[in-house]
Design a protein around this nucleic acid. Sequence first.
DNA 1: GCGACCATGTTTGCGTTGACAACATTGTTT
DNA 2: AAACAATGTTGTCAACGCAAACATGGTCGC
Lengths: 200, 200
Amino acid sequence: MKTSRRPYHHGNLREALLSAAERAVETIGAGNLTLRELSREIGVSHASPRRHFADRQALLDALAQRGFERLGAALARAARGKEAGFEARLTRFARVHVRFARRHPVLFGLMFAAKGRPDAPDALRQASEEALAPATAIFTDGQARGEVVAGDPARIGLAGYAAVQGLIALTAGGKFKGVPLDTLVGEVIERIVLGLRPRA
Amino acid sequence: MKTSRRPYHHGNLREALLSAAERAVETIGAGNLTLRELSREIGVSHASPRRHFADRQALLDALAQRGFERLGAALARAARGKEAGFEARLTRFARVHVRFARRHPVLFGLMFAAKGRPDAPDALRQASEEALAPATAIFTDGQARGEVVAGDPARIGLAGYAAVQGLIALTAGGKFKGVPLDTLVGEVIERIVLGLRPRA
DNA sequence: GCGACCATGTTTGCGTTGACAACATTGTTT
DNA sequence: AAACAATGTTGTCAACGCAAACATGGTCGC
């Protein structure tokens, strides 16, 4: 009996819950995630998650926050390299962004849904802002190099970033299945950079 | 006792459920919608919705479908007028689209979430495609007038429509509160039409 | 007229869930 | 070693979705 089959304390329940939830959510959908099933899977009692998350929503918010932190790290990496041209940089940024959304579609939806909620926790809000911050640098640098029209970077960037965000929403629908995603992103960014109107 | 206080049959429960649900969803969120509360509000028993919707999801899907039908009608109206220039037409289209999303944020989220679900009903899928169809006409007409670069309209339009869709997602977050929405849409569309790169 | 039929709402019940309170166990601090 | 804080467990409750059996009232063939 020396080998305690199940130590009374799990040891790292919070992390175990988060990673199990992340996997579960991606397969069954965020709406179908139940704390009890999660507890069952991990092997703890049905009320233990309460010690770490006040309620179901708090767990989902924590999941979203972690998502923003990971996305932010990936985007920051993608946005490095001032030397590169604006379009190349924006394309890299967009590709990373889109790939993340593709790889974790449910988590991604969760992230931006949580961000939009009026009662979103401050930590989540802050994580989302930090994650997306690298975008503005790309635009201001582009302006400094004369590759981007003048104006408030936030407003100029809105058009570009909106296109990226929209592309994600549209490709999530599964449209354009035949075309490789990176190709599609490259095309859209080029189109956004050059404009829809033909150039002289 | 002659005046039947509550006629046994409601008469139009399906519609009553849908409109009550649409209102409720917008205030408490789709996830918090319960069939029982809905039934209580309407004044029927908690199991009656089952006659009209197989389950909760079916009701939400019907809600989304109705949403696409209304959005489609509004977009079709906005896309009329071949005579108008491409940019003006696209701007009107975008404004109507964004306003709809703003006025019914939860429903809008529901619509595109349902559309993305792999097991979405055919009727819903079809409604969503029809609703968004007017967009391609705007682009092909623009190409015919030489106001839009050549190429597969679906691919060209992707950039434009992605921007609209992304703008919705971003403004839903409540950013850019100070700026009137129509102004913002106009700016973004102009930027998309002209491109981010300065014109000679 | 009238009885079978059918659409629609009701009643009752079951299993699951989120939330909560009281208690148990373990590690730490004094 | 005694108090304490952190963490997990057990038991309970109200609400929910779903389902089956039943009730009601209009419609249609005859």
